[in-house]
């Protein structure tokens, strides 16, 4: 057995470890003190997060699991070979909060029916943080964003006439404003449907803001300067149409699918405000949901049918 031992230098061990899953890394903290030190190192953690983002493994989804007991559980679904497969993993929702409000970089914002008890949850590490809001926010819009300069996660709760922001670094609500600084935003109390869910792209949270009588706009919250801003819509969009936002491989995508599907994506960096149209039209007459997996775009056409589109192949 002694001959089998391989004495790999620490820098190579670190490279190997950076390929492991979070679950596996947490287990191997028990290997030795030096391994624990490597795995806990903030630089190692940052590298691991970056590596996971750039790896082509964006094919795992969380879904509410059917459970016979009263507890709320999630199961993990893998998308591979053009179909979904449920993995043998069941994760219990933290603090009984099973409603997903929004997500950003693997972190989910959850709540229960009260809309007052909010939980930030990282399913990869099975860690959760409770935060209570002063009011019930059942009509508010929620968003999660990450300030790239300070690496601070922020929770944005935008209600009709006020909004509040929670900073994870400061572990407190850093803002409770009665008014919006830009023209009346009023993200909360959206009469068309339930309030829009924030879509997090590149650390910024975006919402579609629409009224039946007025035009559709895209509002975003920039965590760098803590301000709400508007994003200009592309030129030739029918402004009365319902639009949806989506994170397409780390860029903001926008689509509307009334009779035909049109997808636009925006180049990264908040400074570029133009949405650039990169795709085509497809003749579909169904209401589609869309997400991107690896280099493909997956349309979820109610129930079981999926349409997969590979932009490289057309």
């Amino acid at each position: 057995m002694a001959d089998n031992k391989s004495h790999l230098p620490p820098e190579i061990v670190e490279i190997i470890l950076s390929n492991l899953s979070v679950k596996c890394l947490y287990r191997f903290k028990s290997v030795s003190k030096s391994w624990n030190t490597i795995i806990r190192d903030p630089v190692f953690i940052q590298n691991h997060i970056q590596k996971s983002k750039h790896s082509n493994s964006h094919n795992l989804f969380l879904t509410r699991a059917m459970s016979s007991t009263s507890s709320i559980r999630f199961s993990v679904v893998e998308f591979d070979d053009e179909k979904f497969q449920t993995l043998p993993v069941v994760i219990e929702a933290p603090f009984g909060c099973g409603l997903v409000l929004c997500f950003c970089d693997g972190i989910l914002l959850l709540t229960n029916r009260s809309y007052q008890r909010l939980v930030l949850w990282n399913p990869s590490t099975r860690t959760a943080e409770k935060l209570w809001h002063r009011n019930g926010c059942s009509k508010a819009s929620f968003g999660l964003c990450r300030d790239p300069n300070t690496d601070d996660f922020k929770v944005v709760v935008a209600d009709w006439y006020h909004y509040s922001v929670y900073s994870c670094k400061k572990k407190s609500w850093i803002m409770m404003k009665k008014e919006y600084e830009i023209e009346y935003t009023g993200l909360g109390f959206n009469p068309r449907s339930t309030s829009p869910k924030g879509v997090c792209v590149d650390g910024v949270s975006y919402w579609v803001w629409s009224r039946p009588t007025t035009v559709t706009k895209i509002v975003y919250y920039d965590p760098r300067d803590d301000k709400f801003k508007f994003l200009r819509l592309p030129e030739n969009v029918d402004r009365c149409k319902i639009i949806y936002l989506v994170n397409v491989r780390g860029s903001l995508g926008m689509y509307c699918n009334f009779c035909k599907v049109q997808i636009w994506t925006k180049e990264n960096g908040v400074s570029s405000k133009e949405l650039i149209r990169v795709e085509y039209k497809m003749p579909f007459w169904f209401s589609l949901k869309l997400c991107s997996v690896r280099n493909k775009i997956v349309f979820h056409e109610n129930k079981d049918r999926l349409i997969i589109y590979n932009p490289c192949e057309k």
Partner: peptide
């Protein structure tokens, strides 16, 4: 290194110590 990680993914702590020649401190 990705392949080694793949081999390690479901292994126990004891297996890793033996294979990497690590003493449990």
């Amino acid at each position: 290194s990705a392949k080694i990680a793949q081999v390690m993914e479901k292994k126990s702590v004891g297996w890793v110590r033996r294979k990497f020649g690590i003493e449990n401190d």
